[in-house]
Every structure is written in C-alpha cells, then in structure tokens.
Write a protein that binds this DNA or RNA. Sequence first.
DNA 1: CTAGGGTTAG
Length: 419
Amino acid sequence: MSPYLALRRARHLSTATSAAIKPVTISQTKSKLRNVYDPDEALKIYSSFTAANDPSTSPASTRYAQELAVRRLAKSHRFSDIKNFLESHKSLPQITQEPFLSSLIRSYGVVGMFENAINTYNEMTDLGTPRSTLSFNALLSACVQSKVFDRVPVYFYEFPAKFGFSPDKFSYGILIKAYCEMGSPETAMEKLKEMEEKGVEIGVISLTTILHALYKKGSSDEAENFWHEMVTEKGCQPDVGYYNVKLWHIHGGKPEAVKGLIEEMNNAGIKPDTISYNYLITCYSVNGMMDEAMKVYNDLLKAKGCNPNAATFRILVFHLCKKERFMTGYKVFKQSVKVGKIPEFNTLKYLVEGLAKKGHMTEAKAMIRTMNKKFPPELLKAWGKIMEELGLAHVDIEEVNSTGIEKVVDLDKIEKAST
DNA sequence: CTAGGGTTAG
C-alpha cells in the first residue's frame, strides 16, 4: 500500500481538488507545490509522484514534496499523521537505499521530530540499509533543525567509529553550526584545527557560520580578526554569504552604511542577492523611508536580477501597514500571491484590518477570499470574529460553502480512481 | 547529494 493510502485509510482523510500534476523541472515543481497549503493536498501530490514512477520526476522533487507534505501537516499540528506517513515508507523495498531512508530522517528533522529521526537511524541495521556519511549527516541536520544541538557532538564522536566511516566536510559543517548555536564559537574554532589534522577541507561556509556566531555574541573585533586571519592564512575568499553576515551585523544602523556595503559587494564583483536586498529594505523600512524601500523592491527583478522572496513581501507589507499605506500594501500582497510567496497569517491579518478600517472593503474581501484558500482551517477559526466586527462575515460563508462542495465531488473521483 | 547567510514578532 502506498504511504498516502495507508494514511488515508487510517485517518479517513478529506481530499481537496487538484489537477493532475506533471512536473518537468525542479523549479517548476517547487513553484507549483508552494501554492499547496492543504496538507492532504500536499500528500496527494506526493503520492502522485511516487505512484507514477515517472522518470521525469526527479528524486529531488519527490524529496521536496515529502518535506512539504510533512511541513504542512506540522502546521496543522498533525504529528501522529506525520509519523504514520513517514513510517509507512519503511515497508517499501526502497528502504534499503540510503538516500531514500535519509530523506525520512530529514523530514522528521524539519518538523522537530528528533526522537523519530534517531530511531530511524538506529533501525538501519534491521532494515538492511548501509550507513555512510549520507544518513549520518541527515541525522546531524535533523538534530540542528530540531534544536537539540547537544546531541550533535555526542553522535559525531560515537557513530563514525561504531559504523566504520569518517566524518566529511558536511558533518563538520553541521558540528560547527551546533557549537555556534550553543553559544560556543570557540569550540567551533577548535574543530577547524581538527579538520586540518584529518585532512578535511575547510570551506567558506563553516567560516561564515563562526563569523556569524562571533558577531551575535557582540564580539565584532574578534569576528573581524578571525576573518582577517582566515583570509591571510587560508586564502579564504569572501562570497555573498559572508557579506550577508556583515549586512546582518549593520542593518540595524544607518541606511547609508547598508547601501555602502552593497556597493562594496558590487565593486568586489560579488552580486548581492535577495537576502542582501532584504536587509536594505528592512533598514529603510525601520527608518520610516518607505519610498526608498519600495524603490529597492521595484528595482529588484528588473535592475538587480533578484526574485523577491516570502521575507521580502512580509517585510514590506508589515512596514507599509505600520505607516498606514494599506493600498500599497495590498498591491504588494497581490504580487506575492501571483508568485506564490505570500506572507504569513498575522502580517496579512494586519493588512486586512487596515484596509477595512480605511473603508477599502472590496480589497479586504478579496484578501479574505484568498486567505481562506491558503491557510489551514485551524488558523481561520479565530478569523470569524474579526470578520464579523468588520462586517465581512458573509464572504467567509460563501467561501466555505463552495470549497465544501468541491471537496465532496473530488473525493468521489479519488475513490473511483484508487480502486 | 547534504553545510551558511533569511525564516522570531512586530
């Protein structure tokens, strides 16, 4: 039985509408999946990937769909469903393939189910899956994502000897991240020595992790000395990630400084990315310079060649609301919907309330219609009261009725198709 | 076929 069917049978899952999905590239798959907010819908897409056994569906897309389904279930607090879904993979023949099992460990990690991740790793011998750094690194990542940082060094110094492999640069990268998260960049720096002794390559990524941790601790001098040393001794070259750490460090200050550092990047031949520009947008916004912030946003795609991400939209919508520029906020919101990167619920609630308060009822209603499609019912429940107060309650009722009907019709189709 | 830089709430 497919994982999806197993879960449906266990839970009598409701199923929403969807067209048949034929992914071609990973980026197309991602943009489609980003628009899927209903966890059951996400599960259905995942099962269509696995059931079709289509060679044009890359393993990366399947993994992305699995993580997305699990994320959506977590958003609805359906943790026992996550367990049923992921555990059902263990009876499939592919479970003896390490990448397949590793993706289960990763999926447990992204939703903070660290106990299930380590249990899965421990079961590998019984399941007949060989252990290399691949599953090991998946486990270490799961610990970091679940924020159980102190388990990382424990496993790091236990499993490689026990199972006969050597930690690689990724393993060390995660170990360094864990020490940094535990507030100990000093220990992380000691690991660099260990890497050198073992002949493991030290890359710019691990160094930026440490640099960031030093800045976070407030030791700017130490951070800059550390980096200077790495540049002169290890010949380490700054990249966009390095500059983004520096931008993080200064973006609470004057916009001129942020702008200057971005110019410096351009002069150094390092192209600032969306994250870099988000710092500039944030900096302008908190300084009340919304026109400048909007100008950066408007230039982003055309002049800078960067796509705005969900954070870009969130920052702008929030600060535009703060300045009571709700109609501009609404325009930005519409663009975020168009590219499938809408801000989270509370930011949008802020905007709807502002629009209604200023009498822009058409826009407020349009937003509610969109939000009803994009957020889980649990979140929308608290919504009813607010809409009543704003005189928008009927919008909600209409919407619920129409989706209700669609669900019944589609469920019928699914039953027929799966028998 | 993996690690960082963002992802808090306001």
